[in-house]
Design a protein around this nucleic acid. Structure first.
Length: 495
RNA sequence: GGCGCUAUCGUCUAUCGGUUAGGACGUCGGCCUUUCACGCCGGUAAGACGGGUUCGAUUCCCGUUAGCGCUACCA
Protein backbone atom coordinates (compact mmCIF):
# COMPACT_ATOMS: atom_id res chain seq x y z
CA UNK A 1 0.00 0.00 0.00
CA UNK A 2 2.18 2.85 -1.21
CA UNK A 3 -0.82 5.15 -1.06
CA UNK A 4 -0.58 7.02 2.19
CA UNK A 5 -3.30 9.55 1.54
CA UNK A 6 -5.86 9.55 4.32
CA UNK A 7 -8.97 7.57 3.51
CA UNK A 8 -11.99 9.80 3.02
CA UNK A 9 -15.19 8.22 1.77
CA UNK A 10 -18.63 9.62 1.29
CA UNK A 11 -22.23 8.67 1.16
CA UNK A 12 -24.11 10.94 -1.22
CA UNK A 13 -27.85 10.34 -1.06
CA UNK A 14 -30.42 12.61 -2.56
CA UNK A 15 -33.38 13.34 -0.32
CA UNK A 16 -36.22 11.47 -1.93
CA UNK A 17 -38.53 10.87 0.97
CA UNK A 18 -37.39 7.48 2.15
CA UNK A 19 -34.11 5.68 2.64
CA UNK A 20 -33.64 2.67 0.39
CA UNK A 21 -31.99 -0.45 1.82
CA UNK A 22 -29.69 -0.39 -1.19
CA UNK A 23 -28.52 3.06 -0.16
CA UNK A 24 -28.11 1.72 3.33
CA UNK A 25 -25.86 -1.03 2.06
CA UNK A 26 -23.77 1.50 0.14
CA UNK A 27 -23.56 3.71 3.20
CA UNK A 28 -22.61 0.69 5.29
CA UNK A 29 -19.73 -0.33 3.02
CA UNK A 30 -18.42 3.23 3.03
CA UNK A 31 -18.70 3.29 6.79
CA UNK A 32 -16.95 -0.06 7.11
CA UNK A 33 -14.09 1.08 4.89
CA UNK A 34 -13.70 4.33 6.83
CA UNK A 35 -13.65 2.62 10.21
CA UNK A 36 -11.43 -0.19 8.98
CA UNK A 37 -8.80 2.23 7.76
CA UNK A 38 -9.17 4.91 10.37
CA UNK A 39 -10.56 7.20 7.71
CA UNK A 40 -13.35 9.73 7.53
CA UNK A 41 -16.96 9.04 6.62
CA UNK A 42 -18.58 12.02 4.95
CA UNK A 43 -22.27 12.62 4.32
CA UNK A 44 -23.06 14.82 1.35
CA UNK A 45 -26.64 15.59 0.49
CA UNK A 46 -27.22 15.73 -3.25
CA UNK A 47 -30.19 18.02 -3.43
CA UNK A 48 -29.48 19.88 -6.65
CA UNK A 49 -32.81 18.92 -8.12
CA UNK A 50 -35.04 21.69 -6.88
CA UNK A 51 -38.14 19.91 -8.08
CA UNK A 52 -37.76 17.26 -5.41
CA UNK A 53 -38.44 17.80 -1.76
CA UNK A 54 -35.52 18.70 0.40
CA UNK A 55 -35.77 20.04 3.93
CA UNK A 56 -38.12 17.54 5.50
CA UNK A 57 -36.75 14.71 3.38
CA UNK A 58 -33.23 15.34 4.61
CA UNK A 59 -34.33 14.35 8.09
CA UNK A 60 -35.24 10.93 6.73
CA UNK A 61 -31.59 10.41 5.84
CA UNK A 62 -30.46 11.23 9.36
CA UNK A 63 -33.08 9.00 10.89
CA UNK A 64 -32.07 6.09 8.71
CA UNK A 65 -28.34 6.52 9.29
CA UNK A 66 -28.91 6.89 13.02
CA UNK A 67 -31.01 3.77 13.15
CA UNK A 68 -28.36 1.68 11.43
CA UNK A 69 -25.68 3.26 13.55
CA UNK A 70 -23.73 4.81 10.70
CA UNK A 71 -22.68 8.13 12.11
CA UNK A 72 -20.97 10.45 9.63
CA UNK A 73 -17.81 12.23 10.72
CA UNK A 74 -18.64 15.16 8.49
CA UNK A 75 -21.93 16.29 7.05
CA UNK A 76 -24.60 19.02 7.00
CA UNK A 77 -25.36 18.48 10.67
CA UNK A 78 -21.96 17.77 12.12
CA UNK A 79 -20.06 20.17 9.90
CA UNK A 80 -16.42 19.68 8.97
CA UNK A 81 -13.65 21.38 7.11
CA UNK A 82 -14.97 20.69 3.62
CA UNK A 83 -18.45 22.17 3.74
CA UNK A 84 -20.99 23.08 2.92
CA UNK A 85 -22.23 19.51 2.63
CA UNK A 86 -25.45 20.22 0.80
CA UNK A 87 -25.04 20.59 -2.94
CA UNK A 88 -27.80 23.18 -2.96
CA UNK A 89 -25.46 25.39 -0.95
CA UNK A 90 -22.56 24.94 -3.31
CA UNK A 91 -24.00 26.41 -6.50
CA UNK A 92 -21.52 29.26 -6.60
CA UNK A 93 -18.65 26.81 -6.54
CA UNK A 94 -20.08 24.85 -9.44
CA UNK A 95 -20.75 28.01 -11.42
CA UNK A 96 -17.25 29.35 -10.84
CA UNK A 97 -15.63 26.09 -11.82
CA UNK A 98 -17.84 25.66 -14.88
CA UNK A 99 -16.87 29.17 -15.90
CA UNK A 100 -13.23 28.16 -15.65
CA UNK A 101 -13.79 25.34 -18.05
CA UNK A 102 -15.53 27.68 -20.45
CA UNK A 103 -12.62 30.09 -20.39
CA UNK A 104 -10.05 27.37 -20.89
CA UNK A 105 -12.02 26.11 -23.85
CA UNK A 106 -12.77 22.75 -22.20
CA UNK A 107 -16.45 23.58 -22.21
CA UNK A 108 -18.70 25.52 -24.53
CA UNK A 109 -22.13 27.09 -24.77
CA UNK A 110 -24.85 25.16 -26.52
CA UNK A 111 -28.18 26.77 -27.25
CA UNK A 112 -30.43 23.96 -28.37
CA UNK A 113 -33.78 23.83 -26.66
CA UNK A 114 -35.04 20.65 -25.01
CA UNK A 115 -37.44 20.24 -27.90
CA UNK A 116 -34.67 20.50 -30.46
CA UNK A 117 -32.61 17.95 -28.59
CA UNK A 118 -35.55 15.60 -28.33
CA UNK A 119 -36.06 15.93 -32.05
CA UNK A 120 -32.39 15.27 -32.67
CA UNK A 121 -32.56 12.08 -30.64
CA UNK A 122 -35.72 11.00 -32.38
CA UNK A 123 -34.06 11.44 -35.75
CA UNK A 124 -31.05 9.49 -34.62
CA UNK A 125 -33.22 6.69 -33.36
CA UNK A 126 -35.10 6.65 -36.65
CA UNK A 127 -31.78 6.24 -38.44
CA UNK A 128 -30.69 3.57 -35.96
CA UNK A 129 -27.97 5.80 -34.67
CA UNK A 130 -26.90 6.09 -31.07
CA UNK A 131 -28.71 8.99 -29.42
CA UNK A 132 -25.88 11.36 -28.71
CA UNK A 133 -25.46 15.09 -28.79
CA UNK A 134 -24.19 15.87 -32.26
CA UNK A 135 -21.84 18.67 -31.30
CA UNK A 136 -23.59 21.21 -33.51
CA UNK A 137 -22.72 24.11 -31.25
CA UNK A 138 -19.20 22.97 -30.48
CA UNK A 139 -17.55 25.80 -32.33
CA UNK A 140 -19.98 28.67 -32.30
CA UNK A 141 -18.57 32.06 -33.22
CA UNK A 142 -19.07 35.06 -30.97
CA UNK A 143 -21.60 36.37 -33.48
CA UNK A 144 -23.60 33.16 -33.47
CA UNK A 145 -23.65 33.16 -29.68
CA UNK A 146 -24.90 36.72 -29.68
CA UNK A 147 -27.56 35.83 -32.20
CA UNK A 148 -28.87 32.97 -30.06
CA UNK A 149 -28.80 35.20 -27.03
CA UNK A 150 -30.79 37.80 -28.93
CA UNK A 151 -33.40 35.13 -29.57
CA UNK A 152 -33.75 34.86 -25.84
CA UNK A 153 -32.24 31.40 -25.63
CA UNK A 154 -30.53 30.37 -22.43
CA UNK A 155 -27.47 28.19 -23.04
CA UNK A 156 -26.18 25.15 -21.23
CA UNK A 157 -22.51 24.45 -20.80
CA UNK A 158 -21.27 21.27 -22.39
CA UNK A 159 -17.95 19.58 -21.79
CA UNK A 160 -15.79 19.28 -24.88
CA UNK A 161 -14.98 15.59 -24.74
CA UNK A 162 -11.57 14.93 -26.33
CA UNK A 163 -10.66 12.08 -28.65
CA UNK A 164 -9.19 8.94 -27.21
CA UNK A 165 -10.37 6.69 -24.46
CA UNK A 166 -10.92 6.83 -20.76
CA UNK A 167 -9.91 4.00 -18.51
CA UNK A 168 -9.75 3.36 -14.81
CA UNK A 169 -9.16 0.52 -12.42
CA UNK A 170 -12.19 -0.25 -10.34
CA UNK A 171 -11.32 -2.11 -7.17
CA UNK A 172 -14.31 -4.36 -7.57
CA UNK A 173 -14.70 -4.63 -11.34
CA UNK A 174 -11.10 -4.32 -12.46
CA UNK A 175 -9.92 -2.41 -15.49
CA UNK A 176 -12.68 -0.57 -17.33
CA UNK A 177 -12.14 1.16 -20.65
CA UNK A 178 -14.48 3.46 -22.59
CA UNK A 179 -13.96 4.94 -25.97
CA UNK A 180 -14.55 8.66 -25.71
CA UNK A 181 -16.43 8.44 -28.96
CA UNK A 182 -19.11 6.64 -26.96
CA UNK A 183 -19.49 9.63 -24.72
CA UNK A 184 -21.09 12.77 -26.08
CA UNK A 185 -20.43 16.33 -24.99
CA UNK A 186 -22.59 16.11 -21.92
CA UNK A 187 -24.07 19.05 -20.05
CA UNK A 188 -22.21 20.25 -16.98
CA UNK A 189 -24.25 23.38 -16.29
CA UNK A 190 -27.96 23.61 -16.99
CA UNK A 191 -29.57 26.65 -18.57
CA UNK A 192 -30.67 27.78 -15.12
CA UNK A 193 -27.04 27.75 -14.06
CA UNK A 194 -27.36 24.66 -11.84
CA UNK A 195 -24.85 21.82 -12.14
CA UNK A 196 -25.68 18.39 -13.48
CA UNK A 197 -25.05 15.31 -11.38
CA UNK A 198 -21.83 14.21 -13.05
CA UNK A 199 -20.29 17.64 -12.76
CA UNK A 200 -21.32 18.35 -9.19
CA UNK A 201 -20.29 14.89 -8.12
CA UNK A 202 -16.80 15.15 -9.59
CA UNK A 203 -16.30 18.67 -8.28
CA UNK A 204 -17.40 17.77 -4.78
CA UNK A 205 -15.45 14.56 -4.59
CA UNK A 206 -12.35 16.48 -5.57
CA UNK A 207 -12.92 19.44 -3.30
CA UNK A 208 -13.86 17.23 -0.37
CA UNK A 209 -10.71 15.23 -1.00
CA UNK A 210 -12.58 11.97 -1.30
CA UNK A 211 -10.02 9.18 -1.64
CA UNK A 212 -12.37 6.31 -2.49
CA UNK A 213 -15.62 6.68 -4.36
CA UNK A 214 -17.66 3.70 -3.20
CA UNK A 215 -21.11 3.66 -4.75
CA UNK A 216 -23.65 1.51 -6.55
CA UNK A 217 -23.07 -0.39 -9.75
CA UNK A 218 -25.03 2.20 -11.68
CA UNK A 219 -22.19 4.61 -11.07
CA UNK A 220 -19.97 2.52 -13.31
CA UNK A 221 -21.32 4.05 -16.50
CA UNK A 222 -21.06 7.54 -15.09
CA UNK A 223 -17.46 7.18 -14.02
CA UNK A 224 -15.90 7.91 -17.43
CA UNK A 225 -17.89 11.15 -17.61
CA UNK A 226 -16.72 12.17 -14.18
CA UNK A 227 -13.18 11.21 -15.04
CA UNK A 228 -13.39 13.52 -18.03
CA UNK A 229 -14.28 16.35 -15.67
CA UNK A 230 -11.25 15.58 -13.50
CA UNK A 231 -9.16 15.51 -16.62
CA UNK A 232 -10.48 18.86 -17.85
CA UNK A 233 -9.42 20.42 -14.58
CA UNK A 234 -6.18 18.51 -14.39
CA UNK A 235 -7.17 16.95 -11.08
CA UNK A 236 -5.99 13.59 -9.81
CA UNK A 237 -8.85 11.09 -9.76
CA UNK A 238 -9.94 9.19 -6.67
CA UNK A 239 -10.02 5.42 -6.43
CA UNK A 240 -13.31 3.92 -7.58
CA UNK A 241 -15.09 0.89 -6.20
CA UNK A 242 -18.55 0.03 -7.43
CA UNK A 243 -20.90 -2.18 -5.51
CA UNK A 244 -23.17 -4.76 -7.12
CA UNK A 245 -26.88 -4.07 -6.86
CA UNK A 246 -29.26 -5.40 -4.30
CA UNK A 247 -31.90 -7.31 -6.22
CA UNK A 248 -35.54 -8.16 -5.62
CA UNK A 249 -36.80 -11.76 -5.72
CA UNK A 250 -37.33 -11.25 -9.46
CA UNK A 251 -33.64 -10.49 -9.96
CA UNK A 252 -34.39 -6.93 -10.92
CA UNK A 253 -32.90 -4.01 -9.09
CA UNK A 254 -34.58 -3.88 -5.70
CA UNK A 255 -37.40 -1.37 -5.70
CA UNK A 256 -40.77 -0.80 -4.12
CA UNK A 257 -42.22 -2.73 -7.01
CA UNK A 258 -40.66 -6.00 -5.96
CA UNK A 259 -40.26 -5.84 -2.23
CA UNK A 260 -39.85 -3.81 0.92
CA UNK A 261 -37.17 -1.23 0.36
CA UNK A 262 -37.62 1.38 3.05
CA UNK A 263 -34.90 0.76 5.61
CA UNK A 264 -36.92 2.17 8.47
CA UNK A 265 -39.87 -0.09 7.67
CA UNK A 266 -37.76 -3.03 8.69
CA UNK A 267 -37.21 -1.40 12.03
CA UNK A 268 -40.95 -1.00 12.37
CA UNK A 269 -41.37 -4.66 11.57
CA UNK A 270 -39.06 -5.55 14.42
CA UNK A 271 -35.69 -5.90 12.79
CA UNK A 272 -32.83 -5.01 15.08
CA UNK A 273 -30.27 -2.53 13.73
CA UNK A 274 -27.46 -4.92 14.61
CA UNK A 275 -29.12 -7.69 12.62
CA UNK A 276 -29.62 -5.45 9.60
CA UNK A 277 -26.03 -4.28 9.86
CA UNK A 278 -24.82 -7.86 9.86
CA UNK A 279 -27.19 -8.98 7.12
CA UNK A 280 -26.41 -6.11 4.77
CA UNK A 281 -22.67 -6.46 5.21
CA UNK A 282 -22.88 -10.02 3.92
CA UNK A 283 -24.68 -9.04 0.73
CA UNK A 284 -22.01 -8.68 -1.90
CA UNK A 285 -19.19 -9.11 0.54
CA UNK A 286 -17.84 -11.81 2.80
CA UNK A 287 -14.64 -12.35 4.70
CA UNK A 288 -13.56 -15.17 2.39
CA UNK A 289 -10.76 -17.51 3.39
CA UNK A 290 -13.24 -20.29 3.86
CA UNK A 291 -14.89 -18.44 6.73
CA UNK A 292 -18.11 -20.17 7.80
CA UNK A 293 -19.14 -17.75 10.52
CA UNK A 294 -22.36 -15.89 9.75
CA UNK A 295 -22.98 -13.79 12.81
CA UNK A 296 -20.49 -11.00 13.27
CA UNK A 297 -20.33 -8.09 15.66
CA UNK A 298 -19.90 -4.65 14.19
CA UNK A 299 -16.32 -4.63 15.39
CA UNK A 300 -15.56 -7.94 13.70
CA UNK A 301 -17.03 -6.62 10.48
CA UNK A 302 -14.98 -3.44 10.68
CA UNK A 303 -11.83 -5.47 11.25
CA UNK A 304 -12.40 -7.83 8.34
CA UNK A 305 -13.85 -5.56 5.72
CA UNK A 306 -11.90 -4.86 2.55
CA UNK A 307 -13.11 -3.58 -0.80
CA UNK A 308 -11.06 -6.23 -2.54
CA UNK A 309 -13.38 -8.91 -1.21
CA UNK A 310 -16.53 -7.32 -2.62
CA UNK A 311 -18.37 -9.45 -5.19
CA UNK A 312 -19.26 -8.41 -8.70
CA UNK A 313 -22.65 -10.04 -9.09
CA UNK A 314 -25.88 -8.59 -7.74
CA UNK A 315 -27.38 -10.15 -4.64
CA UNK A 316 -31.03 -10.84 -3.95
CA UNK A 317 -32.30 -9.33 -0.73
CA UNK A 318 -33.65 -12.46 0.92
CA UNK A 319 -36.07 -11.65 3.72
CA UNK A 320 -36.14 -15.26 4.91
CA UNK A 321 -32.47 -15.08 5.67
CA UNK A 322 -32.91 -11.67 7.26
CA UNK A 323 -35.61 -13.16 9.48
CA UNK A 324 -33.32 -15.94 10.59
CA UNK A 325 -30.49 -13.57 11.31
CA UNK A 326 -32.76 -11.21 13.19
CA UNK A 327 -33.96 -14.13 15.30
CA UNK A 328 -30.36 -14.87 16.23
CA UNK A 329 -29.97 -11.34 17.54
CA UNK A 330 -33.37 -11.31 19.21
CA UNK A 331 -32.51 -14.43 21.19
CA UNK A 332 -29.24 -12.97 22.35
CA UNK A 333 -30.79 -9.72 23.49
CA UNK A 334 -30.84 -9.14 27.26
CA UNK A 335 -34.39 -9.44 28.62
CA UNK A 336 -34.53 -5.83 29.74
CA UNK A 337 -33.79 -4.61 26.23
CA UNK A 338 -36.15 -7.08 24.70
CA UNK A 339 -38.89 -5.97 27.05
CA UNK A 340 -38.45 -2.38 25.95
CA UNK A 341 -38.53 -3.48 22.36
CA UNK A 342 -41.92 -5.19 22.60
CA UNK A 343 -43.45 -2.72 25.01
CA UNK A 344 -45.18 -0.75 22.22
CA UNK A 345 -47.09 -3.80 21.07
CA UNK A 346 -48.21 -4.38 24.65
CA UNK A 347 -49.24 -0.83 25.40
CA UNK A 348 -52.92 -1.68 25.69
CA UNK A 349 -52.17 -3.95 28.62
CA UNK A 350 -51.39 -3.29 32.24
CA UNK A 351 -47.77 -4.23 32.83
CA UNK A 352 -47.52 -2.86 36.33
CA UNK A 353 -46.80 -6.32 37.72
CA UNK A 354 -43.26 -6.22 36.40
CA UNK A 355 -42.20 -9.67 37.52
CA UNK A 356 -45.25 -11.17 35.83
CA UNK A 357 -44.80 -9.17 32.63
CA UNK A 358 -41.16 -10.15 32.56
CA UNK A 359 -42.04 -13.82 32.85
CA UNK A 360 -44.80 -13.61 30.25
CA UNK A 361 -42.55 -11.93 27.74
CA UNK A 362 -39.74 -14.34 28.38
CA UNK A 363 -41.96 -17.35 27.76
CA UNK A 364 -43.35 -15.87 24.58
CA UNK A 365 -40.04 -14.71 23.21
CA UNK A 366 -38.75 -18.22 22.70
CA UNK A 367 -41.39 -18.75 20.07
CA UNK A 368 -41.19 -15.63 18.01
CA UNK A 369 -40.35 -15.49 14.38
CA UNK A 370 -37.54 -13.27 13.20
CA UNK A 371 -39.63 -11.18 10.86
CA UNK A 372 -43.31 -12.09 10.76
CA UNK A 373 -45.22 -11.55 7.60
CA UNK A 374 -48.89 -11.90 8.29
CA UNK A 375 -49.68 -10.60 4.82
CA UNK A 376 -48.17 -13.73 3.41
CA UNK A 377 -51.00 -15.65 4.97
CA UNK A 378 -49.17 -17.19 7.87
CA UNK A 379 -51.14 -18.13 10.90
CA UNK A 380 -50.96 -15.06 13.06
CA UNK A 381 -51.11 -17.20 16.18
CA UNK A 382 -47.91 -18.97 15.23
CA UNK A 383 -45.91 -16.28 13.55
CA UNK A 384 -45.33 -13.08 15.40
CA UNK A 385 -42.31 -10.92 15.92
CA UNK A 386 -41.38 -7.82 17.80
CA UNK A 387 -43.86 -5.60 15.99
CA UNK A 388 -46.88 -7.76 16.75
CA UNK A 389 -45.57 -9.42 19.87
CA UNK A 390 -48.84 -8.60 21.60
CA UNK A 391 -50.61 -11.12 19.39
CA UNK A 392 -48.53 -13.85 20.90
CA UNK A 393 -48.73 -12.70 24.50
CA UNK A 394 -52.22 -11.20 24.71
CA UNK A 395 -53.68 -13.91 26.93
CA UNK A 396 -51.17 -13.22 29.65
CA UNK A 397 -52.66 -9.82 30.22
CA UNK A 398 -56.34 -10.06 29.45
CA UNK A 399 -59.20 -12.52 29.56
CA UNK A 400 -60.22 -11.26 26.18
CA UNK A 401 -58.19 -12.99 23.53
CA UNK A 402 -59.20 -14.43 20.18
CA UNK A 403 -59.99 -18.13 20.11
CA UNK A 404 -58.31 -20.21 17.45
CA UNK A 405 -61.34 -21.47 15.55
CA UNK A 406 -59.70 -24.45 13.93
CA UNK A 407 -58.18 -25.56 17.20
CA UNK A 408 -61.44 -25.07 19.05
CA UNK A 409 -63.38 -27.15 16.57
CA UNK A 410 -60.86 -29.92 16.90
CA UNK A 411 -60.20 -29.96 20.61
CA UNK A 412 -63.13 -28.39 22.42
CA UNK A 413 -65.46 -31.32 21.88
CA UNK A 414 -68.22 -32.13 24.38
CA UNK A 415 -66.22 -35.13 25.62
CA UNK A 416 -63.14 -33.02 26.18
CA UNK A 417 -65.14 -30.32 27.91
CA UNK A 418 -66.44 -32.92 30.31
CA UNK A 419 -62.88 -33.98 31.01
CA UNK A 420 -61.94 -30.39 31.62
CA UNK A 421 -64.56 -30.07 34.29
CA UNK A 422 -63.00 -32.91 36.21
CA UNK A 423 -59.54 -31.51 35.69
CA UNK A 424 -60.71 -28.14 36.92
CA UNK A 425 -61.80 -29.75 40.18
CA UNK A 426 -58.40 -31.32 40.60
CA UNK A 427 -56.59 -28.08 39.90
CA UNK A 428 -58.82 -26.23 42.28
CA UNK A 429 -57.94 -28.69 45.02
CA UNK A 430 -54.21 -28.17 44.57
CA UNK A 431 -52.45 -26.82 47.62
CA UNK A 432 -49.61 -25.40 45.66
CA UNK A 433 -50.28 -24.16 42.16
CA UNK A 434 -46.85 -24.90 40.74
CA UNK A 435 -45.76 -26.60 37.54
CA UNK A 436 -44.93 -29.92 39.17
CA UNK A 437 -48.23 -30.13 40.99
CA UNK A 438 -50.15 -29.08 37.90
CA UNK A 439 -48.44 -31.69 35.78
CA UNK A 440 -49.22 -34.24 38.45
CA UNK A 441 -52.87 -33.31 38.42
CA UNK A 442 -53.13 -33.50 34.65
CA UNK A 443 -51.37 -36.84 34.47
CA UNK A 444 -53.52 -38.19 37.25
CA UNK A 445 -56.66 -37.08 35.45
CA UNK A 446 -55.31 -38.59 32.28
CA UNK A 447 -54.81 -41.96 33.93
CA UNK A 448 -58.10 -41.77 35.76
CA UNK A 449 -60.13 -41.04 32.65
CA UNK A 450 -58.14 -43.40 30.49
CA UNK A 451 -57.25 -40.74 27.92
CA UNK A 452 -53.97 -39.53 26.59
CA UNK A 453 -52.37 -36.56 28.28
CA UNK A 454 -52.76 -34.68 25.03
CA UNK A 455 -56.55 -34.98 25.30
CA UNK A 456 -56.32 -32.75 28.36
CA UNK A 457 -53.42 -30.55 27.39
CA UNK A 458 -54.80 -29.27 24.10
CA UNK A 459 -58.25 -28.27 25.33
CA UNK A 460 -56.79 -26.67 28.42
CA UNK A 461 -54.32 -24.61 26.44
CA UNK A 462 -57.06 -23.52 24.09
CA UNK A 463 -59.34 -22.41 26.87
CA UNK A 464 -56.74 -20.51 28.86
CA UNK A 465 -54.91 -18.92 25.93
CA UNK A 466 -57.06 -19.20 22.82
CA UNK A 467 -54.07 -20.73 21.05
CA UNK A 468 -52.99 -24.15 19.94
CA UNK A 469 -49.36 -23.36 20.53
CA UNK A 470 -47.38 -21.88 23.34
CA UNK A 471 -45.11 -22.58 26.28
CA UNK A 472 -45.04 -25.80 28.25
CA UNK A 473 -48.55 -26.08 29.66
CA UNK A 474 -47.63 -26.79 33.28
CA UNK A 475 -45.32 -23.86 33.39
CA UNK A 476 -47.79 -21.70 31.57
CA UNK A 477 -50.53 -22.45 34.10
CA UNK A 478 -48.19 -21.74 36.97
CA UNK A 479 -47.25 -18.37 35.55
CA UNK A 480 -50.82 -17.43 34.68
CA UNK A 481 -51.68 -18.29 38.26
CA UNK A 482 -54.53 -20.06 39.94
CA UNK A 483 -57.03 -17.22 39.64
CA UNK A 484 -56.73 -16.67 35.90
CA UNK A 485 -56.62 -20.35 35.11
CA UNK A 486 -59.64 -21.36 37.14
CA UNK A 487 -61.61 -18.34 36.05
CA UNK A 488 -61.03 -19.13 32.41
CA UNK A 489 -61.67 -22.83 32.80
CA UNK A 490 -64.97 -22.16 34.55
CA UNK A 491 -66.07 -19.47 32.17
CA UNK A 492 -65.29 -21.69 29.22
CA UNK A 493 -64.60 -18.71 27.13
CA UNK A 494 -64.65 -20.68 23.94
CA UNK A 495 -66.25 -18.24 21.60
C1' G B 1 -30.04 0.02 -31.15
C1' G B 2 -24.93 1.33 -29.10
C1' C B 3 -21.71 0.79 -25.03
C1' G B 4 -20.58 -1.33 -20.24
C1' C B 5 -21.05 -5.00 -16.38
C1' U B 6 -22.44 -9.84 -14.55
C1' A B 7 -23.16 -15.46 -14.51
C1' U B 8 -21.37 -21.81 -8.39
C1' C B 9 -27.30 -25.36 -4.88
C1' G B 10 -34.18 -22.00 -5.02
C1' U B 11 -31.28 -17.78 -2.05
C1' C B 12 -26.49 -15.51 0.31
C1' U B 13 -21.77 -17.41 -0.60
C1' A B 14 -16.46 -20.33 -0.11
C1' U B 15 -13.03 -21.98 -3.83
C1' C B 16 -7.63 -17.56 -5.82
C1' G B 17 -5.84 -24.86 -12.03
C1' G B 18 -5.88 -30.67 -9.14
C1' U B 19 -11.62 -30.62 -3.57
C1' U B 20 -16.29 -36.55 -2.53
C1' A B 21 -17.24 -28.33 -5.08
C1' G B 22 -17.50 -26.41 1.60
C1' G B 23 -20.82 -23.30 4.90
C1' A B 24 -25.45 -20.63 5.87
C1' C B 25 -30.92 -19.53 4.76
C1' G B 26 -35.00 -22.26 2.85
C1' U B 27 -36.91 -27.02 2.13
C1' C B 28 -37.51 -32.44 3.39
C1' G B 29 -36.86 -36.48 7.12
C1' G B 30 -35.67 -37.82 12.17
C1' C B 31 -34.66 -36.93 17.47
C1' C B 32 -36.47 -34.18 21.72
C1' U B 33 -41.71 -33.53 23.38
C1' U B 34 -48.05 -31.91 26.29
C1' U B 35 -48.41 -28.22 21.29
C1' C B 36 -45.49 -24.73 18.63
C1' A B 37 -40.84 -22.77 18.48
C1' C B 38 -35.82 -23.53 19.86
C1' G B 39 -32.03 -27.09 19.74
C1' C B 40 -29.59 -31.48 17.79
C1' C B 41 -28.83 -35.22 13.74
C1' G B 42 -29.40 -36.38 8.68
C1' G B 43 -31.05 -35.64 3.44
C1' U B 44 -31.98 -32.53 -0.92
C1' A B 45 -29.69 -29.20 -4.26
C1' A B 46 -24.94 -25.79 -8.07
C1' G B 47 -20.29 -24.49 -11.63
C1' A B 48 -25.79 -21.20 -18.02
C1' C B 49 -24.07 -23.18 -23.04
C1' G B 50 -20.11 -23.89 -26.78
C1' G B 51 -15.16 -23.49 -28.01
C1' G B 52 -10.18 -23.04 -26.77
C1' U B 53 -5.28 -22.78 -23.33
C1' U B 54 -3.38 -26.73 -20.10
C1' C B 55 -1.20 -33.09 -18.16
C1' G B 56 -5.65 -31.12 -15.71
C1' A B 57 -10.51 -26.41 -15.69
C1' U B 58 -15.86 -23.84 -11.61
C1' U B 59 -11.21 -21.20 -11.72
C1' C B 60 -7.55 -18.31 -17.50
C1' C B 61 -9.13 -16.62 -22.82
C1' C B 62 -12.99 -16.17 -26.81
C1' G B 63 -17.95 -16.65 -28.42
C1' U B 64 -23.30 -17.58 -27.47
C1' U B 65 -27.35 -16.98 -24.30
C1' A B 66 -29.64 -14.58 -20.32
C1' G B 67 -29.99 -10.66 -16.76
C1' C B 68 -28.86 -5.86 -15.27
C1' G B 69 -26.98 -0.83 -15.99
C1' C B 70 -25.81 3.71 -18.81
C1' U B 71 -27.11 6.14 -23.18
C1' A B 72 -31.52 13.47 -19.61
C1' C B 73 -30.70 20.65 -19.00
C1' C B 74 -32.73 13.19 -12.85
C1' A B 75 -29.52 11.99 -9.10
Amino acid sequence: MPDTKPVRVRMAPSPTGFFHVGSARTALFNFLLARHSGGTFVLRVEDTDQTRGTAEYEQVIYDALDWLGLFPDEGPKQGGGFGPYRQSERFETYATLAEQLLESGKAYYAFETSEELAQMRADQAANKQAPRYNGAHRDLTAEQIEAFRAEGRKPVLRLRVPEGETRFDDIVYGSITWKNSEIDDFVIAKSDGGPTYNFACAVDDHLMEISHVVRGEDGLSNTPRQLLVYQAFGWAAPIFAHLPFLLGPDRKKLSKRNGSVNLLDFGTRGVLPDAMFNFLSLLGWNPGKGETQEIFTRQELVERFTLEAVNKAGAIFDEERLAWMNAQYLKALPMEEFLNLVRPSLEQYDLSDEAYAHKAVEMTRERLHGLPDIARGDDAAKYYGVANFGNGANYFFSDEYPMDAVGAAKHLTPENMALLEKLTEKLEALNSFDAAAIEGAIRAQSAESGVKVAALVHPTRLVVSGKTVGPSLWELLEVLGRDRVLRRLKTENIQ
